[in-house]
Design a protein around this nucleic acid. Structure first.
Lengths: 186, 186
DNA sequence: GTCTATACGACGATAGAC
DNA sequence: GTCTATCGTCGTATAGAC
């Protein structure tokens, strides 16, 4: 079995970079082969389902990374504020302080394939559930906690859009920095 | 001069519907001719610059509508809260209570053409400037007003993304309803 | 596992009849 | 002003050699 010239992890990261910036329709197989250094047919060897399978694979990888490296922080032993701030730092790193678009936004334009709609929704729900738990822990009632959780996610997503539109990253920083307050930590 | 089978206004509205939902790359000329009832070549007769000119034309029309029907409300004679609420109602109508995506988001994915980047930015700036003026009028200092204005726009944009992701329109309603408070009206 | 070569449809765009 | 017909390119996807 000949060695792979690029690892699955690296491959997924390159695909992620393109899909998050351009969306599903905005990225061509030519773009993908240039970014990965693999020819079309090699990409099809790795992803027999073609471009759709590549996109789904990226979404799965992102949800996995998110759960493992970000949302898991919510269950640490540290004080509540510290955990929320740690999550904020991880999110800021994932979006390169607001310079990178959100995959959930770019992949849901147009009429997304069912696989894509289901996975983007699941990832959004995972984020909201974590924020909700933190907010409940901060003392909010369940209903209020769910609302503030959704609004916190919206603040981040919106800040990323505005950052792209106006080239001003300060809104993203505020969305991250305000996370503890938003979730109800005095 | 033979009569036009579809008015410029109707034509632009159909193009807007497609571009806001699918973004520039996500919409094909075939989509456009089906939505407008005009054949490719007729679309090119109206927009010699092709798809890019159609997109730019839509962006210009939206900025015009926004200035005329929404932002103009900021200069009415009514009390400040009433004017902000009126703007909220117009924005809610424009986005069909959160069911429709924002053109500024969908058109800036990928590497947008220079014309598109310039116009989306100009429209975003127009919104922020109006929000800023209202916030200053509410008693905030200039720097604070600019921040809250950007955050208010981000809240709306983010709520639209979340609405699309999770199918929950309540976040959009909250973003609109909280507009007066956000802009500093007690 | 990766490559070259190719199939074939959809893409944006244009020419010319009416 | 709208149409039919067509161009050349790029899209996704596949076959088969190495």
């Amino acid at each position: 079995m000949p060695a792979r010239t690029i690892s699955d992890e690296q491959l997924t990261q390159e695909l992620l970079g393109l899909f998050r910036a351009g969306g599903f329709d905005g990225v061509s197989l030519t773009d993908l082969q240039e970014a990965t250094g693999l020819k079309r047919s090699s990409l099809y060897h790795r992803f027999p389902g073609g471009k759709l399978e590549m996109a789904v694979s990226v979404l799965d990888a992102v949800e996995g990374q998110l759960r493992e490296h970000v949302l898991s922080l919510a269950k640490d032993e540290a004080p509540l504020v510290d955990r929320i701030e740690a999550i904020g730092r991880e999110l800021s790193a994932f979006y390169d302080a607001g310079r990178l678009a959100c995959l959930l936004d770019s992949m849901t334009l147009g009429v997304p394939a069912a696989d894509i709609a289901a996975r983007t929704k699941a990832t959004a729900v995972a984020l909201v559930e974590t924020f909700t738990r933190l907010s409940v822990e901060a003392g909010q009632g369940q209903a209020d906690a769910e609302m503030t959780a959704v609004d916190a996610l919206a603040a981040i997503e919106g800040a990323l859009v505005v950052s792209r539109l106006m080239g001003d990253r300060s809104a993203f920083k505020r969305a991250i920095d305000s996370l503890p307050t938003r979730l109800g930590v005095s």
